[in-house]
Nucleic acid binder design. Sequence first.
RNA 1: GCGAAAUUGGUGAAGUGGUUAACACGGCGGAUUGUGGUUCCGUUAUGCAAGAGUUCGAUCCUCUUAUUUCGCC
Length: 369
Amino acid sequence: MKIKYELLKKEQNSKGRYGILKTNHGNFETPMFMPVGTLANVKTLTPEEIKDMKCGIILSNTYHLWLRPGEDVVSHAGGLHKFMNYDGPILTDSGGFQVFSLAKKKDIVEEGVKFKSHIDGKSLFLTPELSIQIQNKLDSDIAMSFDECIPYPADYEYAKKSTERTIRWAKRGLDVHKNENQSLFGIVQGGEYEDLRKLSAEETVKLGFDGYSIGGTSVGEDKKTMYSMIDYAVKYLPEDKPRYLMGVGEPIDIIEGVIRGIDMFDCVLPTRIARHGNAFTRNGKINIKNLKYKEDFTSIEDDCDCYTCKNYTKSYIRHLIVSNEMLGGRLLSIHNIRFLVRLTEELREAIKNDNLLEYKENFIKNYKK
RNA sequence: GCGAAAUUGGUGAAGUGGUUAACACGGCGGAUUGUGGUUCCGUUAUGCAAGAGUUCGAUCCUCUUAUUUCGCC
């Protein structure tokens, strides 16, 4: 069975929307933040801990699992859910972004992308068809089309050529997609150009996907540009399908995305900054390594309901991070993911109450920097 | 008691008679957006044991003192 999206409420003063997404592995409300579990695990966390955060769905990655342990291993294990002992919804990224972010030397041709493995330098060739076939075997609930993430800035001619190619790649992926229990999302590219975003959105929607995502953001552009990239694309997306903004996880960006009609977000930020000693709070991001927390025996946030805040002090977590103890990164990851999921919970409430813009103003007022 | 060697920041240490005393670790601060678990970037000795001398100029050469280490009575 494919996923089913139900739009339950539209916010009066913005494009914000509240909905529910039903999958074979459970349902979740949107807007939702999805933690990233690249290598079939959200770094440092167990499936039980992930569920406690009420995040609804997690990500995993085609490129990384293709290289290690190989999609056949996952398939023989009974699919990704069984392999990693997680029975909630899972979305797999296609590998398009990894080609952009990891490969040093890459050669993008019509057929696909030639590049070198980041593990051993072996020559690889990833195509739209292969990406989909791998994802079919991984058996995630939602697969992503294989796309090219256009760098920023990109000149118009390059962006146009790339965007048109990504549309052709989307068609090719759709044609080989076989897994009836797996949904497939198309990806809107187009760089920073309004007409290319329009072209990409319209053509991708014509192909008919189970959901649509906006890619090519948070690649170095300023926030104003990023928000306009969203605006350019969203207006051409159908209301009855979920919309996913890829790779965005700054609290303020999630709020701006929701206001613009986005339903799903994923980002490595909460877990990565956690491992480096940072925590999200209502007053902004804090660096737990700072001297002022050495003897701060309060929790990160008084009113946070996460396991970390209910049980540990800043002083102790600081000690763990400074001592390079893994538990420090674990505890901060738990808090940071829960922070973003709670943010989406509050955004859902704000949509229901039609006070999303007011919520944003209040949030910004407290959130330093 | 005699002789020898040594003394550079929080630590381990490089170095030179001539503007800002290398590097590493540690400390402090910052970054991080479809992962970097061990990452990246800043910053951190107005001073080379103390005092005196030689010199245009000394952390570097000379002397005295202090401390440390190693030999010998």
